[in-house]
Simulated assay, not measured.
Amino acid sequence: MARQVYLIRAINVGGAKLPMAQLRSLATELGATEVKTHIASGNLVCTPPGSPDDFARTLETRIEDRFGFFREVIARSAAQLGDAVAAYPFDAGEEKFAHLYFLTGVPDAELVKSFLDNDFEPDELAVIGADLHIRYRAGVAATKLSVPKIARGLGVTGTGRNLRTVRTLIELAQS
């Protein structure tokens, strides 16, 4: 089994504290090997003991049991992350403004069309498969786009990372 990247939504914000040392310990307890984390925002890289999606569901359950809050865990391979970066349809410019928002599933085409018809100016958005590509023109703090708007609009939730972080996660998964 190849290493996988696990992206945990909304960790260490809004009272959902999950120290990375405890996340690494939990992943190891669940049978994962080659366990690493990157920054304190819920980025786990490891080789799961079985199916990547089964491990993600187990991790969700164990995080809720141990820490008292539910957070979605999204599994992606290094190749899937690389494909998402390669498909990024906008000028990345400063990578801190170029984001990939990894969704929990592929949204319905009608929901995508309706969602993209909204005015999120000056930001640019595109949905490609199970990924929302975002170019924040004025920065994340100034956007009209929010996590609840994404979830309501696309019918699925997810978690975002800037391109610099995604590239680092690819490197960690491949090393």
Rank of each mutant, 00 (worst) to 15 (best):
33 T>C: 04
46 C>Q: 01
19 P>N: 10
43 N>Y: 00
47 T>V: 01
8 I>Q: 02
53 D>Q: 15
37 T>P: 06
12 N>Y: 02
58 T>G: 04
51 S>P: 00
21 A>G: 08
21 A>N: 09
8 I>F: 02
27 A>G: 04
59 L>Y: 05
16 A>S: 11
9 R>N: 10
13 V>T: 14
61 T>V: 05
51 S>C: 12
14 G>I: 01
27 A>M: 08
53 D>P: 12
53 D>E: 15
37 T>C: 02
38 H>Q: 08
38 H>A: 03
34 E>C: 00
25 S>R: 08
13 V>K: 12
53 D>T: 14
36 K>Y: 01
61 T>C: 06
23 L>H: 03
21 A>H: 07
11 I>L: 04
59 L>C: 07
62 R>Q: 12
61 T>F: 06
21 A>S: 13
45 V>M: 00
55 F>V: 09
38 H>Y: 15
58 T>Q: 14
62 R>F: 00
42 G>A: 00
56 A>R: 02
37 T>L: 00
37 T>R: 00
30 L>W: 03
29 E>V: 01
33 T>P: 00
17 K>F: 04
50 G>W: 14
42 G>P: 13
44 L>M: 03
30 L>F: 03
27 A>N: 10
25 S>D: 13
56 A>D: 01
20 M>Y: 10
50 G>Y: 15
12 N>E: 11
59 L>M: 06
41 S>W: 07
28 T>F: 04
9 R>D: 13
24 R>W: 09
21 A>T: 09
18 L>Y: 07
8 I>L: 02
28 T>V: 11
51 S>M: 13
34 E>R: 02
29 E>H: 09
50 G>K: 14
35 V>N: 03
12 N>V: 15
51 S>H: 14
20 M>D: 13
52 P>Y: 15
19 P>Y: 10
53 D>N: 15
32 A>E: 09
33 T>V: 05
41 S>Q: 06
11 I>P: 09
32 A>K: 08
13 V>N: 05
38 H>I: 03
53 D>K: 15
27 A>S: 10
34 E>G: 01
28 T>C: 09
55 F>L: 04
9 R>E: 11
29 E>T: 04
13 V>C: 05
52 P>T: 08
24 R>F: 06
54 D>M: 12
18 L>W: 10
21 A>P: 02
25 S>A: 14
14 G>M: 09
8 I>G: 13
40 A>V: 09
15 G>Y: 11
44 L>C: 03
41 S>A: 15
36 K>G: 00
9 R>V: 06
24 R>Y: 13
40 A>T: 13
29 E>K: 07
59 L>R: 04
39 I>E: 06
54 D>N: 15
29 E>Q: 12
25 S>T: 12
10 A>Y: 00
13 V>A: 08
35 V>R: 10
55 F>W: 12
19 P>S: 10
49 P>W: 12
51 S>W: 14
58 T>V: 13
27 A>Y: 02
30 L>D: 06
37 T>S: 04
57 R>D: 15
24 R>Q: 14
34 E>F: 01
60 E>S: 12
20 M>T: 12
29 E>L: 07
33 T>F: 06
60 E>H: 09
27 A>E: 07
41 S>M: 05
17 K>Y: 02
13 V>W: 11
46 C>W: 09
62 R>P: 05
48 P>G: 13
48 P>N: 14
38 H>E: 03
